Amino acid sequence: MAPLFVCLVICGAITAATWLASIVTREYSWVDRIWSVAPIAYVWVFAVASAFDARLVLMAVLVTAWGIRLTFNYARKGGYRPGGEDYRWAVLRGRMSPPAFQAFNLLFISIYQNGLILLISLPALTAFEAAGDPLGAWDVVLAALFVAFLVGETVADQQQWAFHRWKAAETAAGRSPDPGFLQTGLFRLSRHPNYFFEQAQWWVFYGFAVAATGVWVHWTIAGAVLLSLLFVGSTAFTEAISRAKYPEYDEYRARTSPIVPWIPRSRDRAGFRAST
């Protein structure tokens, strides 16, 4: 079977399974739980179908490394345990009527997000259609950039993990954590460095489609574009929650770049130094 058809079948099965699981368990993070796994399957389908074309194998290995890291980070935060639902879904449920949220669950959480997961993987389709061309200098550059962004996201997530462990320990000891949100390390340069590195990896992944064909724009760029738009909405929603919870968050926003790491506008005064 054509690899795209195989991926569409897999995507359809995952979409149905995650939606049904959300209905049965009344937890709505099932797509989050497969987010780091499905792209690995999709890209390897193309790599195998190409008889292990060198570029597609490289792309599959990079996505596998991305997926292993993301799965580990999600697991240690309890995402795979019962009750490990993303806290933002509970906030959103409180703002919507039950029928409206169930429609949102079906159309956005289950169908749209699963479709997006497939789309971000589809530069592999462009590379598959151009299979046979040898790896070149641009492939090496793209692979190095992907790894660099992967390391950056690993560091950001580790800093966030260390901060939340410190915060939990302070709370358990009967103290009020101060500050209440992370402002040091990479989070001194960006309010969401992990978001930046995540998006950057998938734009680099699209770059392999360009390297394979020598053409800058393919329809498979849609995945990277839509992922960035998803992060725009996710960032706005997350920050609205943080602003309501922490009065000092506006000061942090005023001095810190929202996504792209950049020099802060003024010296921050966070009391916590995250372990790197």
Rank of each mutant, 00 (worst) to 15 (best):
L118C: 01
F197N: 03
A38M: 08
G78C: 14
R191G: 00
V45Q: 12
W166V: 05
M96C: 03
R93T: 01
G180Y: 00
V63W: 04
P264E: 08
E239T: 00
L118V: 06
E85L: 07
V217G: 00
I221F: 13
I14M: 09
T184G: 05
Q158A: 10
R81D: 09
S176Y: 07
A127F: 08
G84M: 13
Y252N: 00
L227C: 12
A144M: 08
R93M: 13
Y246L: 01
H192W: 06
R88S: 03
A127E: 02
A148M: 07
F108I: 15
L122Q: 02
A131Y: 12
R95T: 04
V24K: 12
V37F: 14
S36E: 02
Q183L: 13
V204R: 03
P3V: 03
T235C: 03
M59K: 05
F208K: 11
T154I: 10
Y112L: 11
R95Q: 12
L20G: 02
V204F: 00
P193V: 08
V151C: 01
P179H: 07
F104N: 05
P99N: 03
F72P: 01
W89E: 05
I241Y: 00
A244P: 00
A137I: 12
F205A: 12
D32E: 10
G83I: 11
F101V: 15
V9W: 14
E153Q: 13
V232H: 00
A172E: 14
Y87R: 04
T256H: 11
L182V: 04
Y80W: 14
A60F: 09
F108V: 15
Y74A: 13
A224L: 11
R191F: 01
G83W: 13
G12F: 05
G67I: 13
A156G: 06
A90E: 02
G78E: 09
V210T: 02
T64A: 10
Q113E: 04
V141A: 12
F272Q: 01
A137T: 13
A244L: 01
A240Y: 02
A240N: 00
N105A: 02
L189A: 10
